[in-house]
């Protein structure tokens, strides 16, 4: 608990964090940018708000993750912190959940700001589509979950690597692969006749292993008021919990074995 508080405090006073947090100001550009649209100001404002949120969370995850765990190891803060009577597990998880809390808080702020700018923009021009706030809300929730999962990966990579590049670039690679996995899987499964059984099996295994980030993407649902299937959200949530459980416990297991020399 103390460590969570300290981590948050430490993070919030960091300059990089402040720069990233100031990106919230970009929301002011949403109505301006939407105004360029021919006839879908409201839609653009929703897409843009969600995209901005996603962008801020992405940067926050990458930088926050490295600030919180990698830098602790690199600057040898671990020598002092881990010599306190706490387990490594609680250190690792405290750090993780401290950052999750920060991401959560940022998501809430972004959602509140988004609601305002969407309202303003939607008042400029009557859209043929309704604004379904629950869809927008769930899209925000899903983005938060998605980046929580990505953060889990950063922590996993940081649990064994000593360099700055491994966690950051591996996480970016996971991010891209996780975004593409569904599309590529669909593509391979569709071109059924040309590919051998073995290739398909390999594709399936990779599909199981890679995170499926596209399942967290509800932007189209939020923007174009598409009917949301709550069953899908439920399944994605379970998927999130299990996947996060795997990478966190794996990360803890590796971190527990690690030598800090």
């Amino acid at each position: 608990m103390v460590l969570i508080k300290l981590t948050i405090k430490h993070l919030i006073f960091d300059r990089i964090f402040l720069v990233l947090a100031s990106l919230v100001l970009l929301f002011a550009s949403v109505p301006v940018f939407s105004y360029f649209s021919m006839r879908q100001l409201q839609e653009i404002s929703i897409t843009m708000s969600l995209t901005l949120n996603s962008f801020i969370l992405l940067l926050m995850t990458l930088f926050g993750g490295t600030l919180v765990i990698w830098r602790d190891i690199e600057r040898k803060y671990t020598f002092t912190v881990l010599s306190y009577p706490i387990t490594r597990t609680s250190y690792y998880l405290s750090k993780f959940f401290a950052l999750i809390l920060v991401l959560f808080f940022i998501s809430i702020v972004n959602f509140a700001v988004s609601a305002v700018v969407i309202k303003i923009t939607a008042s400029f021009y009557k859209s043929s589509l309704p604004i379904i706030w629950s869809n927008i809300f769930f899209a925000f929730v899903m983005e938060f979950l998605k980046y929580s999962l990505l953060l889990g990966f950063i922590f996993l990579f940081a649990s064994f690597s000593t360099s700055f590049f491994t966690p950051v670039f591996s996480s970016i690679a996971v991010f891209i692969a996780g975004n593409a996995s569904q599309g590529i899987y669909d593509y391979i499964m569709k071109s059924s006749s040309e590919l051998s059984h073995l290739t398909k099996l390999a594709a399936k295994i990779v599909y199981y292993i890679l995170p499926n980030f596209s399942s967290f993407d509800l932007i189209a649902y939020a923007t174009y008021a598409l009917p949301l299937h709550y069953k899908s959200i439920e399944l994605t949530f379970i998927y999130f919990l299990l996947y996060l459980g795997i990478i966190l416990s794996l990360g803890v297991a590796i971190f527990n074995k690690r030598d800090f020399s």
Binding site: F33, F36, S37, M38, I44, T47, M48, L50, T51, S54, F55, E143, K146, F175, I176, G178, N179, A180, G183, I184, F213, S214, F216, D217, I219, A220, T223
Partner: peptide, 22 residues
């Protein structure tokens, strides 16, 4: 682009049409 961009694809799509219109 679509594979790499993830959820950013939606906004990039919007942006490209803006660019065209402008």
């Amino acid at each position: 682009y679509r594979a790499v961009l993830g959820e950013f694809r939606w906004f990039v799509g919007d942006y490209l049409s803006f660019k065209s219109i402008i």
